[in-house]
Design a protein around this nucleic acid. Sequence first.
DNA 1: CCAGACGTTGTT
DNA 2: GTCTGG
DNA 3: CCAGACGTTGTT
DNA 4: GTCTGG
Length: 234
Amino acid sequence: MCGRVRLDIPFAEIAKTLNILGDAPNTRASWNIAPTHDMLVAYLHPERQYRVAENMRWGMVPRWAKEAYSKYPTHNARAEIVRTKATFRDPWREGKRCLVVTNGFYEWRERDKQPFAVARAKENLTIMAGLREIWTDKSSGEVVRSCTVITTKPNSLIEPYHDRMPVLLAEADWPKWLGETPASEAEIYDLLKPYPSEDTMLWPVSKRVGNVRNNDPSLADKIELAPEELQRLI
DNA sequence: CCAGACGTTGTT
DNA sequence: GTCTGG
DNA sequence: CCAGACGTTGTT
DNA sequence: GTCTGG
């Protein structure tokens, strides 16, 4: 997927939809969230056994990392390797799965760099399958909580634009992904597939989204492409 | 064995 | 921390 | 993904 | 031209 998402509705609404019982994290609306920024993440609190929400850095920091920042991009994890590769293996094995909460994401068409917004159709929230991790600096004790978004093959709507898309989860799959209902590893891994294209929508947006300093509601607005561009939408 | 990587998307 | 490449 | 930078000395 | 930061 791309390196940008948006989240632009009040937390109260999110908490209601996701049935989050924990405290409200200090989230503010953003139409341009990039890697290294905070993402809103929901997960099952291991002791309390209810859903909590938290801001976590987008870009997983493995617990064994010497530094909190590295040159290796970890904001996405390919579903094909997430179970085995060093960076994601431990969180996967330990079931540190989470829901990454967004209102959608952006993709750029290569030919003309035209950005498009993508979201689940008919739903306010576009929920992505994620993993989370906690990193602690051995000397200073500094703690960084971070997350990654799992990617998979694109569905037929997105395929003309990109060869990858984030794993999106329908509400019926949330309990299994969060570990609230029993499921085998194979059943859980089976959730990592393209979201149905008939439940996905896509529309062109302003190129201003390319600059992270631009961050206002109009970034997610549908724009009118010139007739010529419309014609070669795909 | 030790040193160095540990990753993604989208390209050429 | 653990796997991979040399 | 795009926008913006594009370096050094000295230290471990 | 290519890498880094957001």
